[in-house]
Each structure stands twice: as C-alpha cells, then as structure tokens.
Amino acid sequence: MTAQIHSFPRSTAVAVTVLPLEARFSLRLRAASREAAEAALGLPLPDRIGRTSEQGGRRALCLGPDEWRLDVPAAEAAAVAGALEGGIPHALVEVTDREVTFLIEGPGSLDLLAIGIARDVRRLEVGRGARTVFDGVQAVLVREGEERFTLAVWRSYASHVEELLRQGAREIALGL
C-alpha cells in the first residue's frame, strides 16, 4: 500500500512525491560478521554511520554501529531475506510496509526540510543519510543530490508528516 498525495501544489521551488515501495530490510549484526555478510549479500556494508553503498541495484545505509537499512528491488526481496541464513549471527527483518518514503526535490527542498528538522541539513553531504527527527517523528533522511532528498517515516505518522510537507511546500511556492 502506498499513501496517496493528491494535492501537493505544483511548484518549481519544491516538489514532494511518495516513492513506490521496493523492498526494505533492517539488518543488525556485529562488526565481526560484517565481511561475511557483505559477501553473502553482494553488497558492501559501510562501517561509518551515515554512509551509503550501492552495488547491483542494492543499497545499504549505515544507521548505527551495528545497524543498516537495505533497499533492494522488489524482485530480490526473497533472495535477500534468505541470503544470510546459516553461520552468520544476525537479525534481518523486512520492513518494506512499515514506512512511507517521501521524495523532496527542488531548490526549496532545504527550506522545506528545515520546518521539521532541527539538525543542519545543509551539512549533510550528497550520498549520505541519517536517522533524525522531523517534527517529533523519527525519520530517515538521505541526501540523494544537492537538492534531492528522501525522507522515510513510519506509516502511522505519514499523514502528519505529509500534511506538514504540504503546508510548507505551499508557503514556499507562495514565497512566504
């Protein structure tokens, strides 16, 4: 299920859309198991918090010292879910349906994010991400490009975040 956004104002300053769901996993494992997991997944797992890695359409974002978010094509979900079985102590949970991911792009995207995020998003480098908080809602932010971000929140908070983004986008479109 994908949340529908019907009335985001059309604007050249900032556009917000909801990304279609592929497959998303939460992976927890100790540093000692990282290399074995990388080989099994066919994907490097960055060891610095906030870094991302990509290989063959799969992507990892390091969220904590022992935690990664994996985004993979939907067709590979079953393969990834079983990739670490046997020998590697870990926790791997599919969380695809838990989250709604907003794509925020345009020259006003930094202004729009600033309505809900206290950290200085300008300092986030392209290709990096972080778990943070958007108006009281835990969110995972990734800077996909200079003026292009994804913001993932848990589904039950999505309507609140969506409404704030809608209001903010409207104000930015009107030049307020």
Binding site: I49, G50, G64, P65, A118, R119, A130, T132, V133, G136
Partner: peptide
C-alpha cells in the same frame, strides 16, 4: 561519540 557529530537535543 558513535556518530562523531554534534547534533541538536531533540535527537
């Protein structure tokens, strides 16, 4: 000390 970043209190 884990993220090695200075961040706002709401986090």
């Amino acid at each position: 000390p884990y993220c090695d970043e200075t961040l706002p209190e709401p986090e």
